[in-house]
Write a protein that binds this DNA or RNA. Structure first.
Lengths: 120, 120
DNA sequence: GAATGCCCTGCAACTGCATTGCACTTTAGC
DNA sequence: GCTAAAGTGCAATGCAGTTGCAGGGCATTC
């Protein structure tokens, strides 16, 4: 079952939410898919994205992601029309100047707009 | 009641969540506070921040925010220790190069780490 | 001064998503 | 084949956001 989920993730160009999986694998249980994603995330195979749509989405990690540390310092793009979330690994997050005393760890950058297939 | 909420927001240095308000105004009802924030957001007084903590937080808009358009293109900082969210209006979000066909509207940048009062 | 209408408030309930506990099945190791 | 571990499925819970409806205060109007 998890192999099927992994295979599905490999074929996706956009990040998928739990309900997406649930719709696609209507045979399988919600919780099974949920735990599959959680396991993948623990093992460093996928990373979770909170794009503000209310549902957490998951996408495969490009490379170099270990279970301890995720290197998903790329930009995520949320299309407000098709409500898909894309990873833009080409666009790296530039350095941001922080005030005195602030030290940054993780950075989450989500851009919202229209994607190339939804542009009118 | 809404005046009290607004006064409370004025005194805050960090963004507040609905449960924060609920804790502070333990006399008032959850829904009243919720609708107050929603009304403020509609009128362009506050903007909502999704810092990934699971709860949406609200902070006063600096200026120039109209009901139609929010100009909160500043960085938000979420401290993983005290779980507070700060607005960093000094740090503007730099331009990000998007792939062909993508057009961006809203941008949400949340940095996570330790703030100046929580640094050890 | 009573009636009407509007806005605010509060109670109840619902929704959606994430999460956990428990029992059952499947798989792997010996 | 037996046992232990991992995976799966059902039920239930929790939390945050959201909406419907009823009551109350206030102003305007007649």
């Amino acid at each position: 079952m998890r192999l099927l989920v992994l295979d599905y993730l490999l074929k996706q160009s956009a990040a998928v939410s739990l309900s997406d999986l649930e719709t696609y694998f209507h045979r399988a249980d919600r919780i099974t898919l949920y735990r599959s994603l959680k396991t993948f995330e623990e093992k460093g195979l996928v990373h979770s994205i909170d794009d503000g749509s209310g549902a957490v989405k998951y996408a495969l990690c490009p490379d170099g992601c270990s279970p301890q540390e995720h290197h998903d310092l790329h930009v995520h793009f949320f299309c407000t029309r098709c409500r898909e979330t894309f990873c833009l690994p080409k666009s790296r997050i530039p350095d941001i100047a922080l005030p005195e005393g602030f030290s940054a760890g993780e950075v989450n950058l989500v851009m919202k707009g229209t994607c190339n297939t939804c542009r009118g």
